[in-house]
Design a protein around this nucleic acid. Sequence first.
DNA 1: ATGATTGCAAACAGTTTGCAATGAA
DNA 2: TTCATTGCAAACTGTTTGCAATCAT
Lengths: 161, 161
Amino acid sequence: MKERMDQIKKELHAQSYKLTPQREATVEVLLENEEDHLSAEDVYLLVKEKAPEIGLATVYRTLELLNELEIVDKINFGDGVSRYDLRKEGADHSHHHLVCIHCGSVSEIEEDLLGDVEKKVERDWAFKIKDHRLTFHGVCVNCQTEHEASDEAPTLKAAHP
Amino acid sequence: MKERMDQIKKELHAQSYKLTPQREATVEVLLENEEDHLSAEDVYLLVKEKAPEIGLATVYRTLELLNELEIVDKINFGDGVSRYDLRKEGADHSHHHLVCIHCGSVSEIEEDLLGDVEKKVERDWAFKIKDHRLTFHGVCVNCQTEHEASDEAPTLKAAHP
DNA sequence: ATGATTGCAAACAGTTTGCAATGAA
DNA sequence: TTCATTGCAAACTGTTTGCAATCAT
């Protein structure tokens, strides 16, 4: 985690952006909540604990900056809120998401499942792909078992295989 | 197109929703602009030509209704606007989109490219998929050729193969 | 020293809602 | 007739912006 932070600092410097305490605190929050999909407001509240003077506008500006630097992906699950998802170190694409339509939980698929599909799209549609957004809407394991006999039994325990 | 309209009317009736002129005009607009990805405001302006008294709120309410009935998919390309995409007759999933990061154009892939991927996700993540959102961000054919020698020559003419 | 960055408040944009009036069934 | 639906305006929510003060370099 420390290394990732240093690397991000380096990237900011490389583009001659200043490393302010506010930016540092924001990145810290993102690192500490890698698993989550925080909205700007969420980030704001968490950053406030470390840097109480920070303003919401600064959080927005920082998140936008991180998005431009491709450190973070701005994603959107259809509620009217943008969420910010830290990229894995070295990842060159946004990862996939599973959104449960019962409980609202969001989990991630880090494995890239689109390799073949992208090849096909680039070939058949002559479209040069730079990034993607893939989200599945459905029912997560917990909700499947809670909500009585489903018509198709779940096979695995969840978690990334 | 006429048949699709009748079918939609039937679906409204089936759920005992009333078929008002405003709803009819809205559906008409969606049918006449199937290729586009209209925002609520876009739809509003177009519907106003047929039914000048209509209010924006009614358009929003109608689009939400159509979304619930799965006649339309509410999609979001990351600008802060929801867009409404008419489903193909009988389609049980949202189709895929290609968004050009140069010119902003959006085109559609109607072929379902996710069959295998979904099988894998359902199996390995024990997630019951109900729908998906897949968008590729990249450079469309036009922009590839305009913007000088790209490092990889486009092979096809675009359009759905 | 100096231009980038910040906090604040005000401005915006898209969407939702309360309510009296209207209209489809 | 009767309850869903509409139009309007006002309310809301998330996000952006202008500006003087501040701070990293």
